[in-house]
């Protein structure tokens, strides 16, 4: 997330400062809160897959960000192909959901394949090697993406503008929400984040594999001892985690702060790490709460910078990484993490 893109994502603060008064202060607070929730939804969506995979398998997936990047491009591709100038708003949003479903299906399959062919042979080694392997995979994905994009005549590093242009006008404007001008894109992100949250929660609580994950994040050995085929569970969960990473990418596609770019790969990875560590590695509830904390911290610090209270342009990034460091010092297992997990 570059500093130049940062300034795009926030509302013009000048009128808010000019008027003053308690009512305006309250309105600003609500606006910053809504923006924070929008950002939190994004952080949640890009981090939830990482925490699922870690919870069951103890694998910190360094290829997570690369998959998000691929998801952003694939989702963008679907929208650019289908949405024309005549497509209506509802139809466009329908295509957006269809793109999410398609991208989820494709990347879930790809993720399962990666688990099956590359990660499975090295479970018996120390966890370091799984980190290394997924990191290598992310390097390859990034470079292949660069090659494909260059061949198609698209610049890999700056954001790919075409899919961002397909965002319906409704989402780009502001809406009057209890007398506060709120960017509709944030509301849309909150909506999508909510959908993903409910879907993952249902997966965790209503399916067999969800049960395995919840059990596995408490005690993996016990799960194995109970005769559950953890190998198949690993494949499914790694696939689902990868698919969720890509769904996060589709969500980022319309957001001017992020947008499809190969640089997403490393940015998303670092922010997803912050969220899962603060929440507690492997804890779904922790990821929800941590995404909220990070999202609101992000919007508050961004607001502080744009109002000119603080003139330091890297404020929100520094705050987010300080949250990570602070949490690790005070409570290494995170908000809801299990103490032994991750301290290999």
């Amino acid at each position: 997330m570059s500093a130049t893109a940062l300034s795009l994502g926030v509302a013009d603060p000048a009128p808010l400062l000019a008027t003053g008064g308690a009512a305006d202060g309250l309105r600003t607070a609500v606006r910053v809160l809504v923006e924070g929730l929008g950002k939190a939804a994004v952080y949640f969506t890009i981090a939830v897959g990482l925490t699922l995979v870690f919870g069951l398998m103890g694998v910190l997936n360094f290829a997570h960000g690369a998959v998000t990047m691929v998801g952003a491009y694939l989702g963008g591709l679907v929208l650019v192909l289908v949405v024309g100038s005549g497509t209506g708003t509802l139809a466009t949003i329908g295509v957006f959901f269809a793109a999410m479903a398609i991208v989820f299906a494709v990347t879930t399959a790809a993720g399962s394949l990666i688990e099956l062919k590359l990660i499975r042979p090295i479970y018996d080694r120390t966890p370091t090697y799984q980190i290394l392997l997924t990191f290598g995979v992310s390097l390859i994905i990034e470079e292949v993406a660069r090659i494909v994009l260059t061949l198609r005549g698209i610049q890999p590093d700056p954001q790919w503008q075409a899919p961002m242009g397909t965002a319906p006008d409704v989402l780009l404007g502001r809406t009057d929400f209890l007398g506060i001008a709120v960017r509709r894109l944030y509301l849309f992100e909150v909506l999508i984040g909510g959908v993903v949250l409910v879907a993952v929660w249902l997966f965790l609580t209503r399916t067999l594999y969800g049960l395995y994950i919840r059990a596995g994040s408490e005690d993996t050995e016990m799960v194995q001892a109970l005769g559950i085929d953890v190998r198949r569970a690993f494949t499914v969960v790694f696939g689902v985690g990868t698919g969720l990473a890509a769904v996060g990418g589709v969500l980022l596609m319309w957001d001017p702060i992020w947008g499809p770019s190969v640089l997403l790969s490393i940015d998303v990875l670092l922010y997803a790490f912050v969220v899962v560590i603060i929440g507690g590695l492997g804890s779904f509830r922790g990821t929800v709460v941590a995404a909220g904390i990070v999202g609101i911290a992000d919007s508050v610090t961004t607001w502080l910078f744009t109002t000119g209270v603080v003139t330091f342009s890297g404020l929100s990034e520094v705050t987010i990484f300080l949250l990570l460091v602070g949490m690790l010092i005070v409570r290494p297992q995170g908000l809801y993490g299990v103490e032994e997990v991750g301290g290999h």
């Binding site: 670092l270 520094v318 460091v325 690790l328 991750g342 301290g343 290999h344």
Partner: peptide, 16 residues
């Protein structure tokens, strides 16, 4: 800290 947590906290410091 140990393991993944050590890697993450040093990464966090460097990023700050």
């Amino acid at each position: 800290l140990t393991g993944v947590y050590f890697a993450m906290i040093t990464l966090g410091f460097a990023q700050v």
